[in-house]
């Protein structure tokens, strides 16, 4: 299997001079996301020149930052307010305009709410089916992606002339943020779609690291019993410089906001250390965390399925264990 992979990579390096990839960058206003850096790595694995698209008003600094990323050949900058808030119709108009002008062989975006929103619409305009949540690049036409909540890994290919991919950031290292010296040019002007308009947003701000890129994640489930009790996990996470996550049960019970949900329908994380506290380990939750390097489960039910994937399991009352753990670390 491994040898096959090596052979395939050898083949890529010959064919790749025909590839050219557009990476659609994500940035929370000022800074490229970790997922974008992972997408740039995925684009480099495909081979060929890598162009990064930065869209949104007042994003000159983000474009400059993208130009400095290792492996980036050029940056397209669409500095216009219509691209703020990543409205699917507007981003689609932009990406389709660029594709018509430049005929990239691949268009890549990090798997996220934004890309899953606009990339299928680009697919409709170009009559191409995107590959969702790519975990690995086998060669420039062949990719691996999960199905059935990560319980099956499919190797898939297509003969479409342009390949659209969302790539799972946890599957690729982040590209080096320095060492590149790409040119920045203005993206071609795209017609405004004007179908949907942004009204407002509510985001929760936190000093903790971003859930999807944190080195340590401490997650709580129904066993936490209340939102106040998540304070225990916040303290532990702060001590480990980690992020706090949650199971669907904890979100549905109103303990924590939705954006903390880890799982098939929430975020997918693969930190070095994942501590699951009071989480039973349903298939849908495991889909979001089972690629973590080390998994610790703290649960008083010895039969909980989470213990089947945990490297270290502790069967005890979380209200006793978590404070003790926080103290001893």
């Amino acid at each position: 299997m491994f040898q096959t992979t090596l052979r395939t990579f050898a083949r890529v390096s010959n064919a790749s001079r025909f590839a050219s990839t557009l990476v659609v960058a994500e940035h929370a206003g000022q800074k490229l996301t970790g997922g974008t850096l992972s997408a740039i790595t995925a684009a480099s694995k495909i081979g060929g020149d890598v162009t990064v698209l930065v869209a949104g008003s007042n994003t000159a600094d983000v474009a400059k930052e993208a130009a400095a990323v290792q492996g980036v050949k050029s940056v397209l900058h669409a500095d216009a307010a219509q691209f703020d808030h990543a409205i699917a119709e507007e981003l689609t108009s932009l990406v389709v305009t660029i594709q018509q002008a430049s005929s990239f062989s691949h268009i890549v975006a990090p798997s996220s709410n934004i890309s899953k929103n606009f990339l299928p619409r680009v697919g409709a305009a170009l009559d191409v089916a995107p590959f969702t949540d790519v975990l690995a690049v086998v060669d420039e036409n062949t990719f691996q992606r999960p199905m059935y909540a990560g319980n099956a890994i499919a190797t898939v290919t297509s003969s479409d002339t342009v390949k659209l991919l969302t790539v799972r950031p946890t599957g690729f290292e982040k590209a080096n943020a320095t060492g590149g010296s790409a040119s920045v040019t203005a993206a071609p002007a795209a017609p405004a779609a004007g179908l949907t308009s942004f009204v407002s947003e509510e985001t929760s701000s936190s000093d903790r690291p971003d859930l999807t890129s944190a080195r340590v994640v401490v997650s709580g489930g129904r066993g936490m019993k209340s939102g106040e009790n998540f304070g225990l996990l916040n303290t532990l996470a702060d001590k480990l410089k980690g992020a706090v996550g949650a199971s669907r049960a904890a979100v549905d019970a109103g303990f924590v906001p939705n954006e903390l949900q880890v799982g098939q329908t929430g975020k997918v994380v693969a930190p070095e250390l994942y501590i699951a506290v009071g989480i039973s380990g349903a298939i849908q939750h495991l889909a979001g965390m089972k690629d973590s390097k080390t998994i610790v489960a703290i649960n008083k039910d010895a039969e909980a399925p989470i213990f089947q994937v945990a490297d270290y399991g502790l069967v005890d009352d979380l209200f006793k264990v978590v404070p003790e753990l926080t103290e001893k670390i």
Partner: peptide
């Protein structure tokens, strides 16, 4: 008027 879940929270959009 649609509220949709984003990676950072929720946003509200208006569409015909």
């Amino acid at each position: 008027l649609i509220t949709r879940e984003t990676d950072a929270g929720v946003e509200t959009l208006q569409a015909p």
